[in-house]
Computed example of a mutant assay.
Amino acid sequence: MRLMPFVLAAALLPAAAAAQCGGGFQNFVKLMKEEAVQAGYDNATVNAFFAATSQDPRVLKADRGQGVFQKPFIDFSRRLISQERLRRGLQMSQKHDATFQRIENTYGIDRGVLLAFWAFETDYGGYQGDFNTRDALVTLAHDCRRPELFRPQVFSALELFKQGNFDPERTTGAWAGEIGMVQMLPGDILRHGVDADGDGKVSLKTSAPDALMSGARMLSHLGWQPGQPWLQEVTIPADLDLSMSGTAKKKSVAQWRKLGVAAREGNLADPSLRASLLLPQGHKGPAFLAYPNFGVYFEWNQSFTYVLTAAYFANRLQGAEVYEAGKPDSGLNDAQMKQLQKKLQARGHNVGDIDGILGARTRVAVQKEQVRLGLPADAWPTPALLKKL
């Protein structure tokens, strides 16, 4: 389910000049092979790895078809979180209790965090993807949309092959090159793979202990703070200045408390922690405080909706109540969102691609225009905003 990949760890970068993206695919493969040899790999290894490499049009189609991220948080989270997924998550927590205890003791990461990723990425290992990993990575490295993200991963896969931990003809995974139960890229496996079950191999496709410990080690490397929260549902006062909300705006928990923000369950976290107020569907919908660990989620996936849903599901797996959905104002459909992005762009805002997705830059632009127009500045675009623009 990791549909917006991000290179989580520095991969092995060859010393030779990079093969340019685009052009004839087989010529691109030829240049990649030459680059690998210049980087020190022997001809036999390189030829064996790249033998029968082919472009996979399904990968390109998947890369351009990420419409699921156009869904608002409430719809998206209800789609991904079911009673069955929750039940199985609790079952897996018991089944692999020893591994989760080891993770908590070693890295200080609560089990709900790993269980949520495991659920969303592969449905607890049930479906890990059927794309040939080598072909997927080379296809995306050749494509000029984001070659800088995928090209290093080709060489990481080559290194795994050299070490005997990758079969270029048989290793399969997600369309974006992630492998195993928690979907890790080859560069991540090289740096963070853990042989947790002690069989002498790092087997992220078949060993739950290996996959979970490797994922935990990666999160720790990315900056996860042991024993700290990541997300908490809150209530906000009616007179709160909504322009203070957003992932880029932070205040101490003590400051949020003074402003009238309160925990929906229990108490707010350590008063000295800094947190952002998130209103994924505006001030009439759910509200959350996002703590420093929440930022680590964006190193796993860059979609705000996915990240928020994964963080919330981690809470649910640890006993939190279902969030209060409220009654958010109507949002925009795909055509309206693209129209909004064009209007924002015309007013000098950097919203990135006109893709119909309410991403971070679009949210920032929306909030600025809401302030300018005297609307509730909660970064939630509505038909009323579109009309005023």
Rank of each mutant, 00 (worst) to 15 (best):
P381I: 04
D135M: 04
D75N: 13
A325K: 11
R2G: 13
G177H: 01
K251Y: 08
Y107A: 13
G23V: 04
G260W: 04
R87I: 06
L212F: 11
G164W: 02
C144G: 14
D355I: 15
E369W: 04
V59L: 12
A269S: 14
F50M: 07
V29G: 00
G285R: 03
K95Y: 06
A263T: 11
M184I: 14
F100A: 03
V296I: 10
P286K: 00
E159L: 14
P280F: 12
A39V: 04
A36I: 14
F150I: 11
L212H: 12
K327M: 09
D353V: 11
A98G: 03
L12M: 14
A335S: 07
S214R: 03
Q232S: 09
N43Y: 05
L289W: 08
E169V: 06
G23A: 05
Q163V: 03
G187C: 03
F50T: 09
G215P: 05
M244F: 07
F6R: 11
A15F: 08
L279W: 11
H349Q: 00
R316F: 02
L212W: 12
V7E: 14
G112T: 07
L140V: 03
A52C: 09
A17Q: 09
D56S: 09
D353N: 15
M4Q: 15
Q55W: 02
N267E: 13
E148R: 13
G246C: 05
D135E: 06
K338W: 06
T172I: 15
S203R: 14
M92F: 13
P152I: 10
G359C: 09
L268R: 00
S245T: 11
A325C: 09
M92G: 07
F73C: 06
A136T: 07
G326A: 15
Q94C: 04
A39F: 01
C144Y: 15
Q20D: 12
A136D: 09
L259P: 10
L279T: 13
K71L: 14
L86S: 00
G126Y: 04
S272H: 12
K249T: 13
L277K: 10
R102L: 12
M1E: 01
L358N: 03
R134K: 05
E178Q: 07
Q70D: 15
L278G: 10
P168C: 13
K250W: 13
Y291W: 07
R145A: 05
A119E: 02
F304M: 02
V366P: 06
P286T: 01
D130P: 03
G177C: 05
I236E: 01
G246E: 02
Q232W: 04
F73K: 09
R64Y: 01
A18V: 07
L278S: 13
A136M: 08
E324A: 08
K30P: 14
V59M: 10
D378Y: 10
V253R: 09
